[in-house]
Structure formats: structure tokens, C-alpha cells
């Protein structure tokens, strides 16, 4: 088969992606620069007002808040995920695949269901309150569900398996002799971990952090269900512009800024990974 033949194999799929992904996304890009019509429609005159509005303190605040929640979730997920990945990598090698399989298994179940599981645990008549009562805690329980804390727990819970996977990859590839050499030269376990193992596994940490952050900052399901509409994150704001407020150009502008943040982070992460692997090559 010549090099030209593959075109007709690829055409149907590429046409589909062009029609239902590339063009719609370009449309969103264009919409951000149009004016909102009087009755929720779109007026086709060029404007930068929508983009400017994104940086209005009110909306910039929501961006910052989303970033804070996403950052906190990513940080916690990376700490727990790294510890778990380290423990898996330290297990006997024949047990590692099965441990990894069960660490990732929850990730395969429905996102809504995994989030709902936390509503079951955290609601006013839920298991945690019940457990506290049973243990003899009689005072008024603080509200658990519909708080920022619940949203962070939900995000960590949902994305933890990915972080474990991302951190396990570099940990399992690490040559154990390097750590042993460090110990032989007199470094303590902690020093060896901090100065040798940790720096060599930064790519996994970066991948895990960026992944959780990117998926969390634009998330709309978890804040809606576990935050209970008590506060808005950027995903909910975009949702509202399209389905309730009917201000599509502003919603498009919000999405554009969100995508820009995500792309920036993903590029940074690729850069970090490439630099780390480049540094390793120079060492050897």
C-alpha cells in the first residue's frame, strides 16, 4: 500500500472530528468576541467586552477560588497518591500488578456514582454522622455535605487512582541500586528519599498534579453535587451562562480562558517531563 492510500481510511473519522469537534470549538472561540443580544441571542458585532468581563473582580474571584480548590485537591491527591505508589513499588514484585489493578479499579466506575457514594457518607443522616453518634458524640455535628471540604474530598477521591498510576511509573523504573549506593555512602533513608528518589520521580508527580488540577478546575459535577450550589466554580459558571443565564458570548469567553489555563499547564508539564528525561540522559 502506498503512502497515499491511507487517506481514504482516515477521511471518515477526520471528517467527523472536523465537523463535531474542530468547527464547534472554533465556533466557541468566535462567539467569545460577539456581543450578547438583547433577548439572549447573539449580535454579530465584534467586542472585547466578554473577555474583559472575565477579569472583572467578581468573576476573577471565581476563577481564583476554583484554582484554589483545584490546587488543594491536586496537592492532597499527589501526597496520598505518591505515598500509595511508593508503597506499591516497595511491595514484592509479583504482588505489584494486582495491587496496581485494585488501586485503579474504582477509576473505571461511573464518576457520578463515585461522587454519590460520598453523599451517602456525608449527608445529615449519613454514615459518618451515624458513626459519630454511635461513638457517643452527642453535640450538634458540623455540616459535612455541601461544603468546600466535601468538594475537595470528592475531587481527591475521584482522581486519586490516576495519580497513583502516574507516580508508580517512574518509581517502578527506578534502579534500586541507586538508592542502595546512596545508603552505602552513608545517607539515611530519609536523605536518600529526599535527595535521590524524589527528584528522579518528579515527572510522575508533575503529571499527577497537572491532571488533577486541570480536571478539577473545570469540573462542574462535583461542585454541583457535593458543594450543593453553595458556591460556584468556573465549570458551574460556564454551565449557567449556557443553560440558565443565556449569555453565550460570556460563557464562550470563560471557556476560552479556562482552556488557555489548561493548555498552559499541560505544556508546562510536557516541558518538565522532557527536561527531566533529558537530564537523566545526560547523566548516563
Amino acid at each position: 500500500m502506498k503512502d497515499r492510500k491511507p487517506l481514504y481510511l482516515m477521511t471518515p473519522a477526520l471528517a467527523w472530528l472536523t465537523a463535531f469537534m474542530v468547527i464547534p470549538c472554533l465556533l466557541i472561540l468566535a462567539l467569545a468576541f460577539f456581543r450578547r443580544g438583547l433577548y439572549g441571542g447573539i449580535e454579530y458585532t465584534f467586542t472585547l467586552e466578554n473577555l474583559a468581563l472575565v477579569f472583572d473582580p467578581l468573576y476573577a474571584g471565581i476563577f481564583l477560588k476554583s484554582a484554589a480548590i483545584a490546587g488543594l485537591s491536586a496537592l492532597i491527591a499527589v501526597i496520598i497518591g505518591y505515598a500509595a505508589a511508593f508503597a506499591i513499588a516497595a511491595a514484592p514484585s509479583r504482588r505489584q500488578p494486582i495491587l496496581l489493578f485494585f488501586a485503579v479499579l474504582p477509576f473505571w466506575s461511573n464518576y457520578l456514582v463515585r461522587t454519590y457514594a460520598w453523599i451517602v457518607l456525608l449527608n445529615r443522616e449519613g454514615l459518618i454522622t451515624g458513626l459519630a453518634r454511635w461513638l457517643g458524640y452527642d453535640a450538634e455535628m458540623p455540616r459535612l455535605l455541601y461544603t468546600e471540604g466535601a468538594v475537595v474530598v470528592g475531587l481527591v477521591y475521584n482522581y486519586l487512582p490516576f495519580v497513583i498510576l502516574a507516580c508508580y511509573a517512574p518509581l517502578s523504573r527506578l534502579n534500586p541500586e541507586i538508592a542502595e549506593a546512596s545508603r552505602d555512602l552513608g545517607a539515611s533513608s530519609w536523605t536518600t528519599f529526599r535527595r535521590v528518589v524524589l527528584p528522579m520521580t518528579v515527572p510522575g508527580i508533575a503529571t499527577g498534579f497537572v491532571f488533577v488540577f486541570v480536571l478539577s478546575i473545570g469540573n462542574f459535577v462535583t461542585p454541583a453535587l457535593l458543594g450543593g450550589g453553595q458556591f460556584q466554580m468556573i465549570g458551574n459558571l460556564i454551565y449557567a451562562q449556557f443553560l440558565t443565564a443565556n449569555d453565550w458570548p460570556f460563557g464562550a469567553a470563560l471557556s476560552m480562558v479556562l482552556i488557555a489555563i489548561m493548555m498552559g499547564l499541560l505544556t508546562l508539564q510536557t516541558f518538565a517531563t522532557e527536561r527531566a528525561s533529558g537530564a537523566k540522559r545526560e547523566e548516563s
Binding site: F86, L121, L160, L171, S189
Partner: peptide, 24 residues
Amino acid sequence: MASLANPRLMLAILAAVFAFLYVP
């Protein structure tokens, strides 16, 4: 990795993480 790891600590971490993942 095994040479750096405290087996009891590792077991505790695994137990805690798997409980977090599977209890809900």
C-alpha cells in the same frame, strides 16, 4: 524501593489508601 521502605509503614499506607478507595 524496598530497601528504603519500612515494611510496617508501607502496609499501613496501603491499608489506609485502599480503605479510602473502597469504603465509600
